[in-house]
Amino acid sequence: MCKAQISIRGLTHIYHPGRPGERIALQDINGDICQGELLAIIGPNGSGKSTLARHFNALLLPTRGTVTVDGLSTTDPANRWEIRCRVGMVLQNPDNQLVASVVEEDVAFGPENLGLPPEEVRRRVDRALALVGLGEQRLRPPHLLSGGQKQRLAIAGALAMKPSCLVLDEPTAMLDPAGRREVLQTLLGLNREEGLTVVLVTHFMEEAVLADRVWVLSGGRLVLEGTPAQVFSQREGMQKIGLALPGPAELAWRLRSSGWPVPDGILTLDDLVACLAGLLSETGWGRRQ
């Protein structure tokens, strides 16, 4: 049912092997990322989320094990640039990943590096800017954009390479709530409408809820995986590694444990409100006024 786009087999990554400061960042990770899915990777600080993400486009290479993208191994230097084209990446700080002082010039940077003809670069830039909704800002300097706009610009820069997979390393960590919503809406749109595979590394549980599947990392190991409903039903397991449930799921759990007939699998505020409204009208509380 799942066509694997990125396959990870026995991946172990050790920083500075055999030298002082040696540290095992990832240990024996196995898994497949499916074409067209939205995968969230969560975990506490230092659990290896970013290290894992950087293996997907050959920024880091496995110490042991393999990572393949569409069957191309990241360890083969000949594949490196092809893999970078297929797997686009967006980093956390939008200010440090924009290279040009005009929006459209920045989006053009990737395709220009590929040596594409100017007309093709133009087409890709226009399309990428339209996809993230920045068409009207195309001649502005990036430092005058809002945080959310800057991060969407970084996404456009990745999209101009025409990737089939987009990896985002905590793209919303430095944004305000409005900027975070903008970026998430853009990502959901790209995933649902353009069929782009999206890998979202995040420490916001509310963002993980939007994913098709969730991987939970702890201490460099993949400790939990499944749909958001499956993962967030493991309240104790999550707490043991220092992760909290999303707010609505936590509230639902507390109501359930104090005797209210709240069902499993409540993750979003909308689910919770619908459930509680149903309960209240059943018990007649809603009709008091």
Binding site: W81, R84, N96, E104, E105, G115, V121
Partner: peptide, 27 residues
């Protein structure tokens, strides 16, 4: 310096190679 390091990563992500033949959108 911190910015420079991250920028270098971001440029590498977008296939920047020193000495490679780049093109220009604006001719």
């Amino acid at each position: 310096f911190r910015r420079a390091e991250e920028l270098a990563t971001a440029m590498e992500i977008r296939c920047y190679r020193v000495g490679a033949n780049r093109t220009r959108m604006h001719q």
